[in-house]
Amino acid sequence: MVEIKTPGQIAKMRAAGLVVAEIHRRTAEAAVPGATTKDLDDIAAQVLAEHGAKPNFLGYGGFPATICTSVNDVVVHGIPDRKTVLKSGDLLSIDAGAIVDGWHADAALTVFVGEGHAPRLVELNRVTEESLWAGIAAMRKGNRLVDVSRAIETYIRRQPLPESGRYGIVEQYGGHGIGSEMHMDPHLLNYVDRRRGRGPRLIPGLCLAIEPMISLGTPDTHVLPDEWTVKTNDGSWAAHWEHSVALTEQGPLVLTAPDGGREKLAALGVTAAPDPLA
Rank of each mutant, 00 (worst) to 15 (best):
E130L: 13
S131P: 09
S131A: 15
W133T: 12
A134P: 08
A134I: 04
A134C: 10
I136N: 01
A137N: 07
A137I: 03
A138K: 09
M139T: 05
M139R: 00
R140V: 13
G142F: 00
G142N: 04
G142Y: 01
G142D: 07
N143W: 04
R144C: 08
D147T: 06
V148Q: 10
V148N: 03
S149Y: 03
S149N: 06
R150Q: 14
A151D: 06
I152N: 03
I152C: 11
I152E: 07
E153N: 01
E153S: 12
E153W: 00
T154G: 15
T154C: 01
I156E: 05
I156Y: 11
R157F: 05
R158W: 00
R158D: 14
Q159K: 09
Q159N: 06
P160W: 01
P160L: 09
L161M: 14
L161G: 08
P162G: 13
P162D: 10
E163F: 10
S164R: 10
G165M: 10
R166E: 13
Y167D: 03
I169T: 07
I169P: 09
I169A: 02
V170A: 02
E171C: 11
Q172I: 14
Y173R: 10
Y173S: 04
I178N: 11
I178M: 01
I178R: 06
S180L: 10
